[in-house]
Design a protein around this nucleic acid. Structure first.
Lengths: 247, 247
DNA sequence: TTGAAACTATGACGGCCATCATGTCCTAGT
DNA sequence: ACTAGGACATGATGGCCGTCATAGTTTCAA
């Protein structure tokens, strides 16, 4: 299922002394599956009032509950949407990659953003003012349809998550997460699947709803079995079959 | 937050020798928050091609993956949407009550219904043919907007679920489930909140992603503490404060 | 280059909870 | 009324995994 072209750049590499090259506003808007249904005029219109922003790895873009007057479109990099429980644990519910729109959810019904947005790695993203977007959105049947489809898809995969996370052992949950991320951001090379997101064990633990230690234990065991491989935060699944039959 | 009028009938009571009185097609359509945005003409149109159906407690309305040519609107009773994991456990992701539309999700993008629908109690529901609905839907801005809102709300609460279920002890999860159900289908009477859904411990276990035994243990303990009370599958929260501070 | 911080790794221990087993009570249908 | 099946209840047991502790390794900025 991994479908992306391996030549695509997912995140800014190299040091950060000089900012990695930012994409242009229009590039980002056109790359968005949700927004590229707009007309050229509308896109350049929105592009004109939006502005590119940069978030460093682990930087918080906004806290949950806060009222923000923009939503984001990931340009290069990754943003995770998290929620923190009363016990103080952060749980990651979604991982947004290049072209993905984030923070639009709360926007539609006015109520604040229910989730915290945090950069997984150094990330360029476009801040689009909500107000301007609504002007386009309100009467746009195609856009509404696109939005329905997008939320529907997310809803479906979030049910998948609930089913996987609320039952199942830790190793199953982690395996499920790996496949889920690979599904969106993986590239195949023969049997091995390379996950093009720089994820720490902590990141994975938050997605799987477990602890760093357990995640490390499980993944270390897999590494010894040559099922997976990690090099500088990039995970490759060497033996998808074995991993899959865990689930 | 429980907001319903206690005079509303949530499910057919009494024996089933004679079917409890069915609501009419139009009653159900008008009671639906999603569909009542339609014009009178459209409603009576849809009402004409739909037909009322009855499902007994625990009856399966459709299996996941199957292609069904209708979606449902709950008239009287409750329907749960479940998914079963590879391990054979059923996980309930949503509980749909009177006026709620179910099974529309998969319909919009053609792919089969991702979840199994099962009656929680004896239930009257309206089967609305998808094809006819699409004719109305396709060009209807208001309906699309309503759908976006509905999906958005569901998405939000499903993220809530993920956060709650993937972390947290069993008692916290169960408490969270009770409040979540009470939020939608509870009626307040002084301090006590009565949950107007006939749920077994098994039902609750499936929602909390745990086992019947654990659920029984936890809820029995609460009963001894007079925090909750059960009479013939109807749960009342006597002491919401104590229960809430578990979470 | 170097040092600090973050990440990965591994062990010990204890509590939670899934599983199995057994029994009572309630409900529904003959 | 009687019986069968489902729901509720409770105990015993063992393994998973969260927590704490400690140490090695990588990353990155100065």
């Amino acid at each position: 299922m991994p479908h992306r072209d391996s030549s695509v750049r997912y995140w800014p590499d190299g040091g950060m002394a000089a900012y990695p090259e930012a994409p242009t506003n229009l590039q980002v808007l056109r790359a968005s599956t949700l927004l590229n249904s707009l007309t050229e005029d509308q896109i350049s219109d929105l592009g004109g009032v939006s502005h590119m922003a940069y978030a460093e790895r682990a930087e918080t873009i906004w806290i949950n509950g806060s009222d923000v007057d923009f939503f984001g479109v990931v340009g290069i990099g990754f943003v995770k949407m998290t929620r923190s429980t009363a016990a103080g644990h952060d749980v990651t519910t979604e991982l947004m990659g290049p072209g993905q729109v984030f923070g639009l959810l709360g926007a539609l019904e006015g109520s604040g953003c229910p989730q915290t947005a945090k950069a997984v790695c150094n990330t360029w993203y476009l801040k689009v003012p909500k107000r301007r977007f609504f002007d386009v959105y309100r009467e746009n049947l195609v856009l509404k349809e696109a939005l329905v489809r997008r939320t529907t898809t997310r809803l479906r995969s979030s049910y998948e998550m609930i089913a996987r996370m609320s039952t199942g052992k830790v190793d199953q949950r982690i395996a499920a997460i790996l496949f889920m991320v690979a599904e969106s951001y993986g590239t195949e090379d023969g049997k091995t699947i390379r996950i093009n997101v720089p994820l720490t064990r902590q990141d994975i633990a938050e997605m799987a709803g477990t602890t760093v230690e357990s995640t490390i234990r499980v993944m270390s065991a897999w590494q010894k079995k040559k099922w997976i491989e990690t090099e500088s935060r990039t995970i490759s699944i060497l033996n998808p079959d074995s991993l899959a039959e865990l689930i």
